[in-house]
Amino acid sequence: MAKNIKDYTVEEAWNEIEKNLNEDPKPIEGMNVVYQYDISGDEGETYQLHLSEGKAKVEKGTPAEADCTLQMSAEDFKEMLVGKLNGTAAFMSGKLKVKGNIGLAMKLENLLRQYDTSQYE
């Protein structure tokens, strides 16, 4: 059973992301991108999201070169996953920093919106 997003560790949250993306891969169809998240704070860790051939794979660390790197705190990351923190607002206020292709970052935001995250709230 899904719990509240706050009760997940960042690692667990990533597992949920991977699971959801693979269960419904339509939004990631045709994408061939490596996203990197530099999560800061207590659960600070770097994760990569590899999207290719309609599949999503989450990796810890930096096994591949990222097309787009996003930096944010663990807390903000979780809020963003459930749509409580709007990506655009996060960019503007500096809570979310992006390095590399901004278009890809915006695309990811759009992508995540397409998943139902109400079970995590």
Binding site: F91, M92, G94, K97, V98, I102, G103
Partner: peptide, 16 residues
């Protein structure tokens, strides 16, 4: 860096 990012993000939006 923050100001530059705001500029870059809004520019992306404007262009795309």
């Amino acid at each position: 860096p923050h100001q530059q990012q705001v500029k870059d993000v809004v520019h992306w939006f404007a262009e795309n």
